[in-house]
């Protein structure tokens, strides 16, 4: 095993986003791209931040990066046109018998 590298004085070099927080919650936000009016409210309020604009069929829409979405529902509550749905992740879809 090689030597562990430690940065002088417990400093950390450039920013990293290596901690993928997308697996924290039981739900993910998903944007209904037809309804999205690209107002940017979800992008402004997302605390991670993990929502960005993308071009979809010549239309600008918001898209959630599920690598980081913790499923907090903030975007859901601030969306003025109900374009965001909270989707339960597959592994949490349990059948109760």
């Amino acid at each position: 095993m090689g030597k562990v590298k430690i940065y002088l004085g417990a400093s950390s070099p450039a920013k990293t986003s290596e901690m993928k927080t997308g697996d924290w919650g039981t739900e993910w936000a998903k944007v209904d791209e037809d309804k999205c009016i690209a107002c940017g409210r979800c992008i402004t309020f997302c605390p991670e931040p993990c929502i960005e604009y993308v071009e979809k069929n010549d239309k600008k829409v918001a898209r959630v990066d599920t690598d980081y979405c913790k499923g907090c529902w903030i975007c859901f509550t601030v969306c003025p046109v109900d374009a965001i749905k909270m989707e339960t992740k597959e592994i949490y879809k349990l059948e109760v018998c």
């Binding site: 562990v4 430690i6 940065y7 002088l8 417990a10 950390s12 070099p13 450039a14």
Partner: peptide, 28 residues
Amino acid sequence: PVVSLRIDKPVAMGCYAPPPTYMEFRVA
């Protein structure tokens, strides 16, 4: 300075270290 606060080369100084790294810093 070897490490310092600069806009063109941002670093985070005074990070907290969890048990897998703390000891090395103190021994350093």
